[in-house]
Amino acid sequence: MELFCTIDFYLAYHKLKKKNSYKDLESEILNHFFDKSVLDLCEGTLLNSRSEVNPYIKKRIKGKGGYRIYYYLYISNDKLYLLFVHPKSGSLGASNIDDTFKAENIKKLPVAIRNKEIYQLEKDKSGKKITFIKQE
């Protein structure tokens, strides 16, 4: 499964990465999203339970005080789009995001895909770092 992210995710990720208290975010993403089966990725809260095939998921990472990651699993195209991330605790922590924002995240995705405002995520040679490649 190929991994992509929106600009919103890219910005949120890099903002968090600057803070020492969120330095484990990169390894958490590597552990939870790379080299995983569809079954592994279909875990968490399904936000579009009245929809068709492809799930829009909120994943709880590291439980309380951890991270919440929102993603869209484009099963038919074998692609996963990371849409947003927020921590639960710390100076940039938030308890939850509201419905408007949950909807806003998914609303931006078709536009971003069409306009190629998307980054592809790959592991670097060491396998311990994520490289973001802007789509042309």
Partner: peptide
């Protein structure tokens, strides 16, 4: 959200359909 509010959000399901 999943069972009561998002199902009434027209934009939300339209975006998913678009995808």
């Amino acid at each position: 959200s999943v069972f009561y509010t998002l199902p009434n959000n027209k934009d939300f399901y339209e975006s998913l359909k678009d995808l």
